[in-house]
Design a protein around this nucleic acid. Structure first.
Lengths: 190, 190
DNA sequence: ACCTGAACACCGTTCAAGT
DNA sequence: ACCTGAACACCGTTCAAGT
């Protein structure tokens, strides 16, 4: 009765804003367009959030939180560490499959210098979480701690780059091809 | 007498616009700011270029052309193919060293869906040129044609991703670290 | 040939006013 | 409690007018 995911206005705004930001970035997040998608006027958004910066911070924080949950679920679901590593790129693939969108935080990494501080922080959290998750998995798979960190960062960077390149070509097969090459090289393993 | 690089107004505009776009993207390229940097009014930009879209297309085309020249020079300078591959990330590093800017086309790959068609084309040309250069070098280094293409794409994607991640942390040492990991993996070799 | 001020429609934002 | 219209300063763009 209380844990129902009753979609509040705030939630609707956050969800719509996330989709727009994954396709157009922070700069491309237009409040009049967003409001229209939610069915209210732009001025009404200011009842829910004090500014675009705060709205975007909430979006990025929620995105980072969801991503942490997805990674935790993947760890449980995949079972062994090797499977986790092989399946890690799935999340990134899903964005591309969803109207050629990309990871919110990849877009925002490009826009980094123009981002409000709170949004920058959330982008950092997202990246750090991903690297930490990979690091844990790599160590569980037998990597030495120091190597695990280097490798974790390399995986995150390489997969992000593959997603960006695939978006530029609007070609999800290219993403799969790149991930396949990474695998063949042994990048997605300890 | 005639080949002097006499800096025309058009050139000054293109150079300033390139720097802005590498830091803020196409969307973040503000014509009033750009005009101020050049020492004219925003309206005057329209004497040199019919629109922001055309200006950005000229910027991206010039960027792709310069990049091709830089790669050609690297090939001559480095000598053997193995050295070319090791030094390939240098160009990307230079952008980061230049006020944490990134490759124009990485930023624009993120913004891809919001780009005017002529700008999209130039972004494609840039990526294709890089992959083709890498492919040639990889084959010269002994890779089989089919493997060379896959590998060339993987290098381009991975290095782009490293640049993006390093920008997000404003940490050029992270870029070097990532490239080092790629090298250790054998990514930057045939 | 090159530049400009004034004007237009659009965007983030505010605010007084509605229910 | 939640929403809105009207207004502000800013942006891309146009254009008639300046030199």
């Amino acid at each position: 009765m209380s844990d129902e995911p009753s979609t509040t206005s705030r939630d609707k705004i956050l969800k719509a804003a996330t989709g727009i930001a994954q396709a157009h970035g922070y700069g491309g997040l237009n409040l009049r367009t967003l409001a229209e998608q939610v069915g209210i006027k732009a001025a009404s958004l200011y009842y829910h959030f004090p500014s675009k910066a705060d709205l975007a911070a909430a979006v990025a924080q929620r995105y980072a939180k969801d991503s942490a949950a997805t990674l935790a679920a993947l760890a449980t679901d995949a079972g062994d560490p090797a499977a986790c590593l092989l399946r890690y790129p799935e999340t990134f693939r899903r964005s591309l499959a969803n109207s050629n969108r990309i990871c919110l935080c990849s877009f925002m990494a490009a826009e980094y210098d123009d981002l409000p501080a709170a949004v920058q922080d959330a982008v950092q959290v997202f990246a750090d979480q991903n690297v930490a998750w990979l690091e844990t998995v790599l160590q569980a798979a037998g990597a030495l701690p120091e190597q695990a960190q280097r490798r974790a960062r390399a995986i995150f960077a390489a997969v992000s780059g593959a997603q960006l390149m695939a978006r530029g070509k609007a070609d999800i097969a290219l993403f799969d091809n790149l991930i396949g090459t990474y695998r063949a090289l042994g990048l997605l393993a300890p």
